[in-house]
Simulated scan of single mutants.
Amino acid sequence: MSTRADGSSPATTQQSATQQFVTRVGGRIRALRKGRGWSVQRLAEAARISRRMLTDVELGQANPSLATVDRIARALDTDFAALALPAGDPAEPQVDGTVVWQSEDGSRALLIGATQHPRAELWRWTLSPGGRYEAEPDRPGAQEIHHVLSGRLTLELPAGPRTLAAGQSAVIPSDQEYAYRNEGAEPAVFMRVVTGA
């Protein structure tokens, strides 16, 4: 196993980044909920999740799905990016982004930045060979733009799969069930822009 200059392994660094995300999101959710004077039960009902899950999220003891964080954000009249991105000047460039999702095979999603009006999010995804991510539908009218930087990305859509090679792009409605998968032998690296979610 390789180590970084600070002595940490890549796996430890990834776990640390994920825990930072989980802790940040949980703290912000709790602060917004308390600021509204809402109980855990009230927010859980508004977000359509269990009270136990919400408690675990607020305490940084659960790694919720992207869709779960989005449902909580909507219930609090905010958005995913406001909960996920580090605080600071929104005009300041994010070099690495915020690790929002990762799997044991090394696949991961970085939220690089977002705008408020109109709402849009910029992501950089890496799917390892054999990697797959199942998404849940976004709000009606939401769309995603995908641009493949390297490898091949297959979009699983209700109308059938669509495979994109390096340099190719596609726009899909994301208010439907869909998934990403990498059937190739090398990582699939792609940019993803989400609008209207």
Rank of each mutant, 00 (worst) to 15 (best):
A46I: 01
I145A: 05
H147D: 01
P173E: 07
D89S: 13
T163K: 06
T23W: 00
R28V: 08
T13K: 12
R108M: 11
A166H: 07
G35M: 03
A165L: 12
A170Q: 08
V171N: 00
Q143R: 15
V148Y: 03
G141S: 14
A31C: 10
P86S: 08
T12N: 08
S150M: 11
A165Y: 05
A5W: 08
R42V: 15
A91S: 15
L111F: 05
V57P: 02
S39T: 15
V171K: 06
P173V: 06
K34N: 14
T115Y: 01
A73T: 07
T78N: 02
S8M: 08
T98H: 02
T78V: 04
R33A: 05
A31P: 10
H146T: 10
E45Y: 04
T126P: 01
P118C: 04
P137V: 12
Q94N: 11
W38S: 07
S65I: 09
E186D: 11
G131M: 05
V69R: 00
Q15F: 08
E45C: 03
V22K: 06
S128P: 00
T115E: 07
G106F: 08
F190P: 03
Q15R: 15
R119V: 03
V194H: 00
G27Y: 12
A73S: 11
E58H: 04
A142N: 06
A5R: 11
D79F: 04
V189N: 03
R24Y: 08
A135K: 04
L157K: 04
I49N: 04
S8F: 03
I49H: 03
T98G: 03
L59A: 15
N182Y: 04
V171F: 00
V25F: 05
E92V: 13
G26I: 10
L155E: 02
P86C: 02
P90Y: 04
L164C: 03
H117S: 13
L122E: 06
A197H: 12
H146R: 00
P140V: 14
W38F: 14
Q14A: 15
L85R: 01
P93S: 11
G130P: 09
Q41R: 14
V171S: 07
L32M: 13
L153C: 11
L76F: 09
L83W: 02
A44R: 08
E183Y: 00
L153P: 11
A81G: 12
D56M: 15
P187I: 07
H147K: 00
G88R: 02
I29F: 09
A47F: 07
Q143S: 15
S174T: 13
R71C: 06
R28T: 06
A84R: 02
T195L: 13
Q176M: 08
P187Y: 00
L85C: 06
H147C: 06
L155C: 02
E58S: 05
A166D: 07
S174I: 08
E177Y: 01
E183K: 01
P137D: 11
S50T: 14
G130W: 10
T163Q: 06
T3I: 01
R152T: 09
Q176V: 13
G113Y: 00
Q94A: 11
V22L: 01
M191Q: 10
G7C: 09
P93E: 12
R119Y: 08
I172P: 02
R119T: 10
T12W: 08
G106A: 03
Q94C: 02
Q168H: 08
L153I: 13
M1C: 11
L111E: 06
I72E: 05
R36T: 03
L83R: 05
A44W: 04
L43T: 15
